[in-house]
């Protein structure tokens, strides 16, 4: 089956990201495909390029990147939620006259239409929220 996840919790603040990653590994182990992860609400912080967790803690941003490498999982970040919270890619940063950016590939900023599309076109959508 093709799965989509909706992640709405901020990493290191609550368990949502950990639960979503654990579920991701579980569904892959059962032979499914994790096609899309959509980050909404405080979930957009999962894409923070400069996250620097201590070495004895899981690096959640890198774990998402690893899923992209393994499964070509699309890592979609809601642009409206992201911009409000300072999660911007290089293009949006320069468009708004900011130096530096906080989001980079394989994460991509996208619209909410992609969430609805994922919910209606994938076999399953599972939400992990704070």
């Amino acid at each position: 089956m093709r799965y989509a996840l909706l992640v709405q919790g901020s990493p290191y603040s609550n368990q949502a990201s950990h639960s979503a990653l654990r579920f991701s590994h579980g569904l892959i182990a059962r032979g499914h495909q994790l096609a899309t992860v959509f980050f909404y609400h405080d979930g957009v912080y999962n894409a923070a390029r400069l996250a620097l967790p201590p070495q004895d803690e899981p690096h959640l941003v890198d774990e998402w990147r690893e899923l992209h490498v393994r499964q070509s999982t699309e890592l979609l970040v809601c642009i409206a939620s992201g911009l409000r919270r300072g999660i911007v890619d290089e293009q949006e940063a320069s468009r708004h006259g900011k130096t530096g950016h906080s989001l980079e590939a394989p994460f991509e900023l996208t619209g909410l239409g992609q969430l609805i599309d994922a919910g209606l076109t994938h076999d399953r959508l599972v939400t992990f929220a704070p």
């Binding site: 909404y40 609400h41 409206a80 939620s81 619209g111 909410l112 239409g113 969430l115 609805i116 599309d117």
Partner: peptide, 12 residues
């Protein structure tokens, strides 16, 4: 944010 999802869904 819930209302935004509803409005975007309807716009689509």
């Amino acid at each position: 944010e819930g209302l935004e999802v509803a409005l975007v869904g309807a716009a689509l």
